[in-house]
Every structure is written in structure tokens, then in C-alpha cells.
């Protein structure tokens, strides 16, 4: 009951954050120098056409009114036309977003479990070989930038041991997949095309690894450290001293308090994938939102930039809501803190 109430409060407060986010983005859009009508229609457009554009797009209204129009369009998914692709921004997003979402899901969710698993193993075998191995790889992976992984993977798994499709992209040209969710692996499986699903998986595997390896090892390290720190706490000694078997102590009494600090870090790492995906998308030729956003910036395509920034912002807000809810479920003290 308390949990439910706390979650509702958290959701309510995030609406305020979202509104704030839209105001900031709108303000930035307005702060960019240049006449939006001119930017949209090009240097040769006659004055009447520009005036008509301004009229239709409410650009002559006071700024707060403009904000209101913009927001109500945005809520309906209308971000205007992209001056670069000459299509509706929403259509572009529909085409590019699934690629990024697929990448982020694979680079974000399975590694969480790998990180927890490695952290727990490492802590339970402290100063034995599984621990040394995890820590050794950890140091290397944490210190390696994402794009170095990307280039190395192409070199190693593209040329030396050719298991990975080097042209990049999401799928080899011989396959076509009927779109359902936009996520190729899932769609291929739904369409009964295991070969295509496998091909899509190989395309996805290395970008996802490049994006996630460093973060995963970082999270494993945090989990390990907090497990070891908590293992000496009185509340663990207490149950151990009562004769509760070690396995049960670890699983039911040690793991929970130890993953709470990791969860917060994991959430932030997950959200930052949307932004970090850019380099990886570039190197692997991945037709995702980050590449699209980058092109939009280089081409001063303000409608597209705004949409991309808003989506990444939404992803951050959404992730932090999920993180907070998970934290509330794990840690009863958080529920209390939120209701006060």
C-alpha cells in the first residue's frame, strides 16, 4: 500500500520534470540564432511565402503561446518537417528509433544480469581465480573507450576471424523482414525466419558488446565491493551466528542490501546508452536515432534536433522512474523518504 502510494507520487513528480524538460528544449530552440522560416524554406523563398509559413506555424504569436502550440503538437507526435530529409520528423523517428531501441535493449538489459552475476561470483571467491580474472578484465574494459572496442571488434571479428558482417547495418541484404515491432530479431522470429533472426543477431552483437562491456565491468565491480563491505556487517554476522546456512545468508540477506547501490548506477548507465550509442552507430553503420540526430545537428535541422533531444530526455526520465521504483521495491526506506 505504502509502496503503491510512493510509486504514484514518483510518477506525479516526474510530470513536473517532463514539463521542465520541454520548456528547456523549447527555450533552446528559440535561442538558436536565425529565422526558422528562412531556415526551413531556404535563401530564395520570397517574403510572402515566409510570412505565410510564419502564420501557419504560429511564429508571430508571443513566445508562451508558441510554446503551447509546439507542446500540443509534440504531444500528438507532430514535430514538423525535417528540413534535411523533407519528411515529417515523426516519420523519420519511426524509421530510426527502433534500431536504437533494439541496440540499447541488448546493450542495456542482459549486461545487468552479467554484471550482477560477475560481481557476486567475484565477491564469493574473493582473492581466488574467478575474482582475479573478473577484476583483471574489469580494469582493462573499464579503461577502454567504446569506440576502441568498436574498431577492435571490426578488426578481430570482421577481418581476422570473419564471424561478423563487416559492412555493418542491421541485416544482410538477402533477407527481408516484415516489420511488426521494428526490432529485427523479434520480428524475424515472429515471421518464422530463424536464419534472418540469427543474421540480425550477429549484426547486433558486436555494437551491443562495444557499448556495454565497460559499463558491465564497472557495475560488477560496484556489486563486488558492496557485497564484501556488507558481508562483515553485524546483520549478516547475526544470521550466520544463528546457524543459517551460508547459501541462504548470501541469497536472502546479503544480496538485497548489496545490489541497491548498483541499481542506481545501472539506471544511469542505461539511460546514457542513448547518447553514447552515437559513435558505435557511426562505426557499425547502424541506422539509429543517434546517427540521425547527429546528421540533423550538422544540417541545422532544428525540428529533428528537438525531437531527438526530447526523446533522449524522455528516455532519461523514464529510466530514472524505473530505477526509483526498483529501488523502492528493494529498499523500504526509500518508500518512507518519498512519502514525506
Amino acid at each position: 500500500m505504502l509502496l503503491f502510494k510512493s510509486i504514484m507520487k514518483r510518477l506525479a513528480s516526474s510530470i513536473v520534470v517532463l514539463l521542465g524538460l520541454t520548456i528547456v528544449i523549447f527555450a533552446l530552440m528559440k535561442a538558436v540564432p536565425g529565422d526558422p522560416a528562412r531556415l526551413a524554406l531556404g535563401p530564395n523563398a520570397p517574403e510572402e511565402v515566409l510570412e505565410h509559413y510564419r502564420e501557419v506555424n504560429h511564429l508571430n504569436e508571443p513566445i508562451p503561446v508558441q510554446y503551447f502550440y509546439w507542446l500540443s503538437n509534440a504531444v500528438q507526435g507532430d514535430f514538423g518537417t525535417s528540413s534535411y530529409t523533407q519528411r515529417a520528423v515523426s516519420q523519420d523517428i519511426k524509421d530510426f528509433a527502433p534500431a536504437t531501441i533494439e541496440l540499447v535493449i541488448w546493450a542495456g538489459i542482459p549486461p545487468l544480469f552479467v554484471a550482477l552475476f560477475l560481481g557476486v561470483i567475484s565477491a564469493q571467491h574473493k582473492n581466488k581465480w574467478p575474482d582475479y580474472l573478473t577484476r583483471f578484465l574489469g580494469y582493462i574494459f573499464v579503461a577502454t573507450p567504446t569506440f576502441v572496442f568498436a574498431v577492435l571488434f571490426i578488426l578481430i571479428f570482421g577481418y581476422w576471424l570473419p564471424v561478423m558482417p563487416t559492412i555493418g547495418g542491421r541485416l544482410s541484404p538477402q533477407f527481408t523482414i516484415a516489420p511488426v515491432t521494428g526490432m529485427y530479431i523479434v520480428d524475424a522470429l515472429i515471421g518464422g525466419q530463424p536464419a534472418a533472426a540469427w543474421d540480425a543477431f550477429l549484426h547486433l552483437l558486436f555494437p551491443a558488446l562495444a557499448l556495454s562491456l565497460g559499463k558491465t565491468m564497472q557495475e560488477a565491480r560496484i556489486t563486488r565491493a558492496s557485497m564484501l563491505q556488507n558481508a562483515d556487517k553485524d546483520y549478516i554476522t547475526m544470521v550466520t551466528s544463528q546457524g543459517v546456512p551460508k547459501k541462504i545468508v548470501n541469497r536472502r540477506f546479503l544480496l538485497k542490501p548489496s545490489v541497491i547501490p548498483t541499481v542506481t548506477v545501472m539506471g544511469m548507465d542505461f539511460a546514457s546508452l542513448f547518447g553514447n550509442a552515437f559513435l558505435v552507430e557511426r562505426i557499425f553503420n547502424w541506422p539509429g536515432l543517434s546517427s540521425y540526430g547527429m546528421n540533423a545537428i550538422l544540417n541545422k535541422d532544428s525540428n529533428a534536433v528537438v525531437a531527438v533531444v526530447l526523446i533522449i530526455g524522455l528516455a532519461f526520465v523514464g529510466t530514472s522512474i524505473v530505477v526509483d521504483i526498483v529501488a523502492m521495491i528493494l529498499d523500504p526506506r526509500m518508500r518512507q523518504a518519498r512519502t514525506r
Partner: peptide
């Protein structure tokens, strides 16, 4: 335990801690 504030697990209900201990005792 000497220090009662640290001898109870902060994120697990008293009931679960108590019953687990008793189950094994």
C-alpha cells in the same frame, strides 16, 4: 549483539529475519 541498530538487516522485514533465524534454531 551489542549494537542493536546494526544487527538487524535494514531492507528485510523483522518477520522474515525472525522466522528464518528460528527455523534453523
Amino acid at each position: 549483539f551489542q549494537d542493536p541498530s546494526s544487527a538487524l538487516n535494514p531492507v528485510i522485514s523483522i518477520k522474515k529475519q525472525f522466522l528464518t533465524s528460528l527455523k534453523y534454531a
